[in-house]
Write a protein that binds this DNA or RNA. Structure first.
Ligand SMILES: [Mn+2]
Ligand SMILES: [Mn+2]
Ligand SMILES: [Zn+2]
Ligand SMILES: [Zn+2]
Lengths: 153, 153
DNA sequence: CAGTTGTTTTGACAGACTCAAAACAACTGC
DNA sequence: GCAGTTGTTTTGAGTCTGTCAAAACAACTG
């Protein structure tokens, strides 16, 4: 199927997302955003490795800089699970949370614990003005549970 | 006041806490526990600096090792706020949470968001068995709010 | 198409933490 | 009390993740 004059490629969408955030559009930025959309919860290192597959000249520092710029612009969200480098994802602005498997490191999204605007309202805010809440549930995923269960017998 | 035969010094309490966790009692361990009780939410580096005041021979690696041992034994809790080294505290087992000031780095305790056992029950656990939840509220403390307010005028 | 501004590369470097081996100290039981 | 066993600490090197600054470079502006 040929694309008509008014149609937009996927790359075009990425470009306007970046431009819409007030950032200049560059090849490494398009690549980073693309990687992040296909592989959420990626570390800088993982993004870097993936980006290099299509843009081999890209430096690690560029990736760090791009991730910081995107995070600052609200295009991506960064979070810091324990015992892991920072992870990045495009799902932003919905205050969702994460399940982290202690066994294998798997990360899964979880919707906001209480419905509504919640999770941004602690029982006593001590005068703080709260902008965001980071909730990480640490546990064992289904796979790691079955891998350990036999050993208990 | 002289201490009778049955009385316990503060150091004695620390010692039996450590022994009760199944760990050998050593001077650096007693010192670390003492520091942590007086200064919760301390980094390894801060604990190290404080310990050296009374036990100047102690190495940084010892402090890292002790903190890891204490954390493993359930004697202290470790948490990882964004943009900060890991912090340690003695308040353990109550699943409490933290307010972190984006401006000055102040950390404050918050009781569990929902009362009861909560915060350990995400809306959908995807089959995970959950052991702990780490909740960090990011915002501005009262002081940082007033420091910034004038600039808005 | 040249100018301005923001971006990327390059290379050095720092912070937080880990690893391994040897020296050492705490508990065990004689 | 004292040697043995086991766990701890020191020492020293090294890793991983991320930061800084300057120069080369590319995107948007008009
Ligand atoms: Mn997510
Ligand atoms: Mn606390
Ligand atoms: Zn798992
Ligand atoms: Zn503050």
């Amino acid at each position: 199927m040929a694309l008509g004059p008014g149609s937009q490629t996927h790359a075009d969408v990425l470009r306007s997302t970046i431009r819409g955030a007030g950032l200049k559009v560059t090849a490494p930025r398009v690549a980073v955003l693309d990687v992040l959309q296909h592989a959420p919860h990626s570390s800088a290192e993982q993004v870097f490795a993936e980006v290099r597959k299509s843009l081999s000249g890209t430096s690690a520092q560029a990736v760090y800089g791009i991730l910081a710029a995107f995070t600052g612009a609200g295009l991506v969200r960064r979070f810091d699970p324990p015992d892991s480098p920072a992870l990045f994802e495009c799902r932003v602005g919905d205050n969702h949370h994460h399940l982290a498997c202690i066994g294998c490191g798997l990360i899964q999204d979880v919707d906001c614990v209480i419905r509504e605007a919640p999770c941004l309202t602690p029982s006593d805010d001590s005068g703080f003005t709260i902008f965001s809440a980071e909730v990480t549930f640490n546990g064992l995923c289904r796979t790691c549970q079955s891998n350990r269960a036999p050993q208990t017998a």
